[in-house]
Design a protein around this nucleic acid. Structure first.
Length: 264
DNA sequence: AGAGGTGCCCCTATTACGTCA
DNA sequence: GCTGACGTAATAGGGGCACCT
């Protein structure tokens, strides 16, 4: 049974999701800093953009050759002639911060080229979390102040916020995905139920007595109590003007009217 | 006014290290 | 002690925007 079959029945399925075309918190490039902590509640409009990851992010021929891990150096990122992350080494303030950071300098004193990974202390993580709750993005001054307070490099604070935003977004995407799954299941169930009801109605229509299929004008009177059931050109006592078998307001009306009215 | 260069910031994808069961 | 899973710091590369020339 296709959609055409459904649409010929006069039944109208009014369920649907009012999804925003471009959810602000999942849009690709917001103009303003994201407030990732202010997501819509699950019962409100769900928002989810699912997309394939860009295929050309790491071309196979360059993925292995060009991605030589750099030994904890900020000067390592030269890409296609365009220098990135230059500020991390050119800014005198950052260098001072780096020297002030015992955790970092300890690692660099190793002299090893291995990429060492910093583990933030509980206090550092707590303060970063606290700050993230206030604002999910930092301006340069905030970043500097936070880095100073945490005895970290501004770059490390920046990276932490980037990763934190990414994690938040991932988590929210998972929540959205679950929510949409449930919506899908609900709609599938509803669809199944309506299909079944439609089948019943069709079967009923085939099985009904011949007089029930006669023109409405001959059938507008209840055979039992002789009250007007409402015809194409008749008007009920309450002023409604509906066909006798209109099912717009109540899909089960037809079935009910095959018997004498309840008032009889 | 508009094009090109540059710096900065952000995002996404990925890597790789540290921790824990 | 070894190992695999997991969390997450760090890196790489690209895009957008503002500013300057």
């Amino acid at each position: 049974m296709g959609f055409d079959d459904l649409s010929n029945t006069g039944l109208l399925l009014g369920l649907g999701l009012n999804l925003p075309s471009n959810p602000p918190h999942l849009s690709q490039k917001p103009k303003k800093p994201l407030d990732l902590l202010c997501f819509p509640a699950p019962e409100s409009e769900p928002s989810l953009t699912l997309g394939l990851s860009t295929v050309d992010t790491y071309p196979p021929e360059t993925a292995d050759l060009s991605r030589q891990p750099s030994p904890h150096s900020a000067i390592s990122s030269f890409s296609g002639g365009k220098v990135k992350r230059e500020r991390d080494v050119s800014g005198g303030e950052d260098i001072e911060e780096e020297k002030a950071s015992s955790r970092v300098s300890d690692e660099e004193e190793d002299g090893s080229n291995a990429r060492k990974k910093l583990r933030l202390t509980k206090e550092q993580s707590a303060l970063l979390e606290e700050s993230f709750k206030l604002h999910s993005t930092l301006n340069p001054k905030q970043k500097q102040a936070l880095a100073r307070e945490l005895n970290l490099l501004p770059r490390q604070v920046e990276v932490w916020f980037q990763n934190r935003r990414a994690r938040t977004k991932l988590k929210q995407t998972e929540v959205d995905c679950e929510f949409l799954k449930r919506c899908c299941e609900t709609l599938t169930d509803e669809n199944r139920r309506l299909q079944k009801e439609l089948q019943e109605l069709k079967a009923l229509k085939l099985a009904q007595p011949l007089f029930m299929q006669m023109p409405a004008a001959t059938l507008t009177m209840c055979p039992s109590c002789e009250r007007i059931g409402g015809g194409a050109a008749t008007v009920n006592g309450d002023g409604n003007s509906k066909g006798p078998f209109s099912m717009a307001s109540n899909p089960r009306f037809y079935k009910a009217f095959t018997k004498p009215s309840a008032a009889c």
